[in-house]
Design a protein around this nucleic acid. Sequence first.
DNA 1: CGGTGTATTGATCCCGTTCAACTGTTGTGG
DNA 2: CCACAACAGTTGAACGGGATCAATACACCG
Lengths: 242, 242
Amino acid sequence: MTFVFNERDGCGKCPIRHRAICARCDDEEMELLEKTKSYVTFEAGQTIVWRGDTLKYFSSVVLGIASLSRTLEDGRTQMVGLLLPSDFIGRPGRETVDFDVTAVTDVTLCRFERKPFERLVEDLPHLSHRVMEMALDELSAAREWMVLLGRKTAREKIATFIEMIVRRDTVPTHDAPRHVLPLTREEIANFLGLTIETVSRQLSLMKKDGIITFSDRRSFVINDLAALQDATGDDADGGVII
Amino acid sequence: MTFVFNERDGCGKCPIRHRAICARCDDEEMELLEKTKSYVTFEAGQTIVWRGDTLKYFSSVVLGIASLSRTLEDGRTQMVGLLLPSDFIGRPGRETVDFDVTAVTDVTLCRFERKPFERLVEDLPHLSHRVMEMALDELSAAREWMVLLGRKTAREKIATFIEMIVRRDTVPTHDAPRHVLPLTREEIANFLGLTIETVSRQLSLMKKDGIITFSDRRSFVINDLAALQDATGDDADGGVII
DNA sequence: CGGTGTATTGATCCCGTTCAACTGTTGTGG
DNA sequence: CCACAACAGTTGAACGGGATCAATACACCG
């Protein structure tokens, strides 16, 4: 059922082939990419790059989830983005990394050396257009999240987060639509600009209100999607985040 | 002293010629842009485009300041970006606008019809690379702002805001470094995720602490830049926002 | 002058934080 | 198999920063 990924397979069998930076590339262009790519994996919790490091590689997330975050001197941490399969790490034309990149789950990256990749971006319009398109989408997503961070209540933040998880849970499992929280309470708190206690309390409230049901602490079922969407604070058409 | 802008002048005399999307373009490319550009102005307070509208034009801000914002159903508003001269409006490859764009001051835009511009982006790599570069910078700026919105205190928010105004006030006026707040208290509040009362109080506190001095309600002088930077909550090297 | 809109200041309230105790789960070693 | 340590998560009680409500000050303009 789950997608089996094998590093030996060519790009043709890659699970993110049609969503990642290479989505628009033709066979000829794929050959160039395939020649220079390599895979690397990180265990959950490992830091992939630190803010301030000079960027050695551009990468796409193939499997797993990574996060972008910034920590203030006194330890307060804000997550500024979740990197899901097909998402891209690196800014062509910029030397350094400006946020910490961390593996949230075990992560597999498809990686390119900086210099050769920047040359490819120059040469392959299909590639650079896709990179730009993805950057613009991320920009919109970041701005949507700014609204959440600046103006939403704790309940609205939690509802928006759950709704986001549900919406992009691309794998519609067998019968009951069961979903998994990919983050710990602490990570959720850092994503939403809250404390773990508030996250825990609000999740308990949504449970008590009958909107969601938890089987264990990580996986849940939606009982009342309308009520959930109502609780996000967005208008009907909704903010489309990522 | 101030830059005199005349719509009749060619792009050669344009005040944003070397910072805007056209920064990298050569003479030949400029000719193509010049042929299709037109200028348009908006008065302070006017809405330039509404969220959801289909985008008819791509534009660069030439003079003045515009804002990007989102308003929730119940009226809560979050500003998600300030558009200063040379900043770009529009997402090549996307049909609709996803945030309200409003003129904060009187604004002059250099404007291109959507279809012809998208064709130019396809054809001129210098143009598309600059657009991508600017999008990536804005993405970083948006993420920096997410840290502010999610984790900073009211005082830190105000200090960061003032510091940003000071840092990018490119016009180092005559003798005393006098700066102008381009936004009303309400706009500052919507930018920082605060209420106008809190903004007012924190500005008064910074005044009482001797960090800044107001001549009138819009213009001020920095007395203690170190203390200001200290109050931002960022580490020494600082977050570079826009 | 008053009128209108913006900004400041004060008093009170409340949501989310903080501090703290407890629960539940998992893994390790005797 | 149990003891217990280590850690993630939940729940409670009290606090406090920023919001809310309200009154006042200030600037601009007729």
